[in-house]
Amino acid sequence: MKPFRVFVVAGEPSGDELAAELVQALRARRPDLVIAGVGGEKLASQGIQSAVSIEGLSVLGLTEGLAALKTVNVRAEETGIAAEAFQPDAVVLIDSWGFTLRAAKAIRSRVPQARLIKMIGPQVFATRPGRAKTVAEVYDALFCIHDFEVPFYEGTGLPVTIIGNPAIARAGKGDGAEFRVRHGLADKKIVLLLPGSRGGEIQRVAPALEGAAALISSKDPLVHVVAVLAPNVAERLEARAANWTFPHTLVGEDEKLDAFAAGDVALACSGTVTTEVALQETPMVLGYRLGAISGFIILNFLLKSRFICLLNIALGRMAIPEFVQNGLTPEALAEAASNLLYDPKAAQDQVSAQALALDKMGRHDPPAAERAAEALLNLLDAA
Rank of each mutant, 00 (worst) to 15 (best):
M1N: 07
V8S: 01
V8C: 06
E12T: 08
E12F: 14
D16T: 15
D16Y: 15
L18R: 04
Q24G: 08
Q24V: 06
A28D: 15
P31F: 12
D32Q: 11
V34N: 07
I35T: 09
A36M: 10
G40K: 07
L43T: 06
G47P: 14
I48P: 10
S53E: 01
I54K: 06
E55A: 05
G56P: 09
V59E: 15
G61A: 04
G61E: 08
G61D: 05
G65Q: 05
R75V: 12
A76S: 15
E78Q: 11
T79V: 11
G80H: 10
D89L: 03
G98F: 04
L101T: 04
A106V: 14
I107E: 14
S109K: 15
S109D: 14
Q113R: 12
K118V: 00
P122Q: 02
A132S: 12
K133R: 15
A136L: 08
A141H: 08
L142R: 03
L142T: 10
I145D: 01
H146N: 13
V150W: 11
P151L: 12
G157T: 04
P159H: 01
T161C: 02
G164T: 12
N165P: 04
R170C: 06
L185M: 10
D187Y: 00
L193Y: 04
P195G: 14
G200S: 15
A206W: 11
L209N: 12
L215G: 05
I216D: 02
K219Y: 00
P231Y: 05
A234N: 05
A234C: 04
R236Q: 12
R236Y: 06
L237N: 08
N243E: 14
P247S: 10
H248D: 02
T249L: 05
V251K: 11
D254L: 02
A259R: 13
F260Y: 13
A268I: 15
C269L: 11
T272N: 05
V273W: 02
T275S: 02
V277N: 02
E281P: 09
E281V: 09
I293T: 11
G295Q: 08
F296W: 15
L299H: 13
L303R: 15
C309Y: 00
N312F: 00
I313F: 07
G316F: 14
A319D: 00
I320K: 06
F323A: 05
T329N: 06
E331V: 10
A332V: 06
L333A: 08
N339Q: 11
Y342K: 00
Y342Q: 02
D343G: 00
D343V: 00
P344D: 01
K345C: 08
A347Y: 01
Q350L: 07
L358R: 03
M361P: 04
R363H: 07
D365A: 14
A368T: 09
L377S: 03
N378I: 04
L379M: 07
A382M: 07
